[in-house]
Amino acid sequence: METASLGGGFADAPVDAARAFRACLNAMARPGRIETVAGAAPPAPLSVAAGVALLTLCDPETPVHLAGAHDCGAVRDWITFHTGAPFSGPAGAVFAVGSWAAVQPLDAYPIGTATYPDRSATLIVEMPGLTAEGGARLSGPGIRDSARLALPETAVFRRNAALFPLGLDFIFTAGDRLAALPRTTRVEDA
């Protein structure tokens, strides 16, 4: 029997998830801020940070879309065992995980409705690295003057912000670090 998927979860779920959520909360409240998380050891190609985010936020009520290389048996088994989340296509996803190229096209995901803008997908985008240096200039709620974060591109986030109050929210992950970009953030080229 395949048992690799049974490991790599939170050792002390309530406390590990509480610390992980605080990192997610701080990241979403302060766009561009990079937080370090710990507690999960997910199978490749999932990063530690993406694994932590999934363990903290997903359960049987949240369909997850695995994009590109992330849609493999090891990842599916691990998510199923540890969270019980069902898998879906992009149109039905509450969360999506994958590289920036794999999660495209972004208009395939739900962006919420006028009366329920919260019914929109959160994309967990795996990045080669997270850095503020030379990154796009961010401003908006959660940011005092401006912040910086290197993004895969900028025009797409401007289009997303223009949909406000609808739109997608992003969590960027690399290794054990994560940052977030809610729909409210205004993104300008560096």
């Binding site: 979403m28 359960d59 109050p165 929210d169 409210t184």
Partner: peptide, 24 residues
Amino acid sequence: NFAYLDEQTKRMIRRALLKALAIP
């Protein structure tokens, strides 16, 4: 459980909190 609520309830609240921050 830690902080009284069960984990699934906390996850549901945590998801709502992240969306609440994204739509002030």
